[in-house]
Structure formats: C-alpha cells, structure tokens
Design a protein around this nucleic acid. Structure first.
Length: 281
DNA sequence: CATTACCTGCAA
DNA sequence: TTGCAGGTAATG
C-alpha cells in the first residue's frame, strides 16, 4: 500500500492526534515477529512510560520521536494502518499492536498481511536507519544536480532505479509508473542514457506526482486509510497506474501493461518510446 | 538479474 | 482454484 504520500499523511495524522501523549502500556502485541529490534523483552520493557515528542517520516518509515533518546519506527509495508481510537473501540484480529496512552485513547497498528515492522532505536540506530536511504524527493536537497548524480552513477534501467530506496527514498510501484509517464520516459530506459533535459523532466515529474498525490490524501487501492480511517482520493487521478487499455490522458493511445523486474508496469507506448535495446512496447 | 519468501483477502 | 496486490529481504 503505502508509498511516500500515504506514509507522510499517516505520520502527520499521528502527530496531530498524539503529540505530547505518553505511552502507559503495551495492551496488545500478538505478532511478535513485527518487532525487529531490539529484543522483544527490551521492547516491552522500554516502551511503557515513554512520551511521544513528535511524529515524522523518513523514506517509508513512520518515526515516533520519544523521550529518553528513543525513536519508535513503524513500516506499514503492504497493508499496515495506524489509528488512534477512544477507549471503547476494541482491537480486531488484524490489530497486532495496541499502545495505551495517558489520556485513555489507544494507538492501533492494524496490519492484515502482517508484513509491517516495528523498531525501537536509539540515536545511533536512527542515524544508521536514515543512512540506508537516498534523498527525500520532496526536500530542497533533492535538486536536479542530485538526481543527475544518482542517474549517471547507475547502470540499471529507470524503473528498478526509482524503486531502489537507497537511490531515492519513498517511491513505490504506483508513483514510479506515474512519474515515468509524466516525464515521458520508458521504464526500461537505461539510467545512464538520460539527457540533461530528460533528467530535468524526471526531476520535476517525481516532485509533481508526489505533491499531487499528497494533495489528494494519497491513494487507496484496497487497504490504505489515513490516521482517521479515511480513504485517499488520488486513485481517481492516476494517468497510467492500473489503467490498462484506457486512453492515455495526453495522446489517447491505449495504456499498456507489462512486467518490469517482476512488477506490473503501466505506460503509454506512444508518449514513452521504448529504448532501442528492448523488444517490449 | 530472477526467484522465493513473508501473509491475507479478494476477484477472475 | 489460481493469480494478484501498495514492500522488502534473502536467496541462486
């Protein structure tokens, strides 16, 4: 489910609801595999009593800045959702972590597919986490020059490069396809083959696509909900994603679907010409 | 680079 | 019943 826009909205919604609250207890934790670090014992022992100073995002991680130098990080993976509920709301069978707060409300981590992950990191751990990822595409550090550097370093094709969180943080299957359509670049183009003008187009497209998705509250295909349980609306504004056979918004050519690095990929064969070394459309 | 694994639910 | 899904890590 969630890529950068959805994770960003989730983090903002959490900040708006639980900043300055304290965690009084772990009320439910019935899928211990979700806790990556530290040990489950240390996780259970450290979390109660911690105050939530702020909630933010890095790459696709929601970061809960706690007191005493700790940061709780949650990755929603495919189906994770975070909610804050009043005391009377019961956790269902897909809610695998419930944190009781000092005002009686509870933080719910709901995750049907159980791919989600939680960590409790010290300052060092947080630094190491952040270093695993490339620049934030919506930050002012993500300039044309930075993208040029990234693109020219790699010999891979565009789609796998853009999906690689170590190159650029936060893009996933939806927003890669949308960004490539927006910039009129074929996903199988070799990264190093891009001209300056094409890099500029890609740079602007990535930022525009992510900003627009944020403005629409993210995309809900099936599972995504914001921190208040609401669906996103950006799925109604896709240009190519899951729009196979519908007309390209630019040129009316039917959108084509193919497989790139094992991921379903959507593009306009007219606007996004295939590179010479490909036999795909 | 491709394949498999991790999970559940849903649509074809 | 099969295949597919927004993510990622671990294998050949």
């Amino acid at each position: 489910m969630p890529e950068l826009p959805e994770v960003e909205i989730t983090a903002r919604d959490m900040a708006a609801q639980i900043n300055q609250r304290s965690i009084v207890a772990i009320e439910k934790l019935d899928w211990e595999r979700m806790v990556e670090t530290p040990t489950i014992e240390l996780f259970r022992a450290t979390l109660p009593g911690r105050q939530i100073i702020d909630v933010g995002r890095r790459a696709k991680w929601v970061l809960f800045t706690l007191d005493a130098g700790w940061t709780m990080t949650i990755h929603l993976r495919m189906s994770g959702r975070l909610f804050v509920h009043p005391p009377e709301v019961r956790a269902d069978e897909h809610t695998h972590l419930v944190l009781a707060l000092d005002d009686g409300r509870r933080l719910f981590f709901h995750d049907t597919r159980k791919f989600g992950r939680v960590n409790l990191l010290d300052a060092d751990g947080l630094t190491r986490l952040s270093q695993r990822y490339g620049p934030e595409p919506l930050s002012k550090q993500f300039t044309h020059a930075v993208l040029k550097q990234i693109v020219q370093q790699r010999s891979t094709r565009l789609k796998p490069l853009l999906l690689d969180q170590a190159c650029i943080a936060g893009l996933g299957n939806i927003y890669v396809d949308e960004s490539l359509w927006e910039s009129r670049l074929h996903p199988l183009r070799t990264a190093a083959s891009l001209s300056d003008a094409e890099i500029a187009r890609l740079h602007r497209a990535i930022r525009r696509v992510l900003r627009t998705a944020l403005d629409h509250g993210g995309s809900t295909l099936r599972d995504y909900r914001d921190g208040y349980g609401q669906r996103g609306q950006h799925q109604y504004h896709f240009s190519v994603y899951q729009r196979t056979n519908t007309p390209c918004p630019r040129c009316k050519t039917p959108i084509v679907r193919l497989q790139v690095v094992q991921r379903s990929t959507h593009l306009c064969p007219q606007c996004q010409p295939a590179p010479d070394d490909t036999k795909f459309g």
